[in-house]
Simulated assay, not measured.
Amino acid sequence: MKDKTIDYIFRTTWLAINKMYNEEAAKFETSMATGFALLSIDPENGTASTSLGPKMGMEATSLSRTLKSMQEKGLIERKPNPEDGRGVIIHLTEFGREKRAYSREKVLTFNEAIRKNVSEEKLESFYEVAGIINNMISNKKIYNQKEHILK
């Protein structure tokens, strides 16, 4: 794998994880995006629709489609935000809570399997490297550095 670029390894690994979760979700006529949304919504107080996209790292249009589908399946309901009349709070229905528990179980199973096969030291290194990469990207330290500007 050392001959592969770092982004290639991240991309192919993420695609494999995405495929795995979607295959599991398809057994219940749903998707990974729906499972991720279920896990991102506060089961007690709901979550403001405006904070859900950034929390999930999803674009508004994709999130809108996902939420519409979830509402049609009876997983969520939208209620006016009592603190901001223009906003909406997304709440899980009882059915949504059941599916959230299922999604949580699948994520924990994945994590447990990885932890059984990868040492804590290697996982810590993985988290550290991923954190550094995320920090560099969010602080525009890759393509937007002054050193990269040709004089």
Rank of each mutant, 00 (worst) to 15 (best):
T5Y: 14
R11D: 11
R11G: 04
T12M: 15
T13D: 09
T13Y: 15
W14R: 03
N18S: 05
N18F: 13
K19F: 08
M20Y: 12
Y21N: 01
E23F: 09
E24Y: 10
A25P: 05
E29V: 03
T30E: 06
M32H: 11
A33C: 01
G35V: 03
F36K: 12
L39R: 01
I41M: 02
E44N: 05
E44Q: 13
N45D: 14
T50Y: 11
S51G: 04
L52T: 04
P54F: 01
K55W: 00
G57K: 04
A60S: 12
T61L: 07
L63W: 02
L63C: 06
L63H: 01
L63E: 05
L67T: 04
E72G: 06
K73F: 02
K79L: 15
P80K: 05
P80F: 11
N81K: 04
P82E: 14
P82Y: 04
E83R: 04
D84V: 06
R86P: 09
I90F: 04
I90E: 07
I90W: 01
L92E: 04
T93H: 11
F95Y: 04
E98C: 00
E98W: 13
R100D: 00
R100Y: 00
A101R: 12
R104M: 05
E105S: 08
L108F: 05
T109M: 11
T109V: 05
N111E: 13
A113L: 13
A113W: 03
R115T: 09
R115Q: 07
K116V: 00
K116G: 00
S119H: 08
K122H: 14
F126H: 12
I132L: 09
I132E: 05
N134Y: 08
N135G: 13
M136W: 02
K140C: 01
I142N: 06
I142E: 06
N144R: 01
Q145T: 15
Q145C: 07
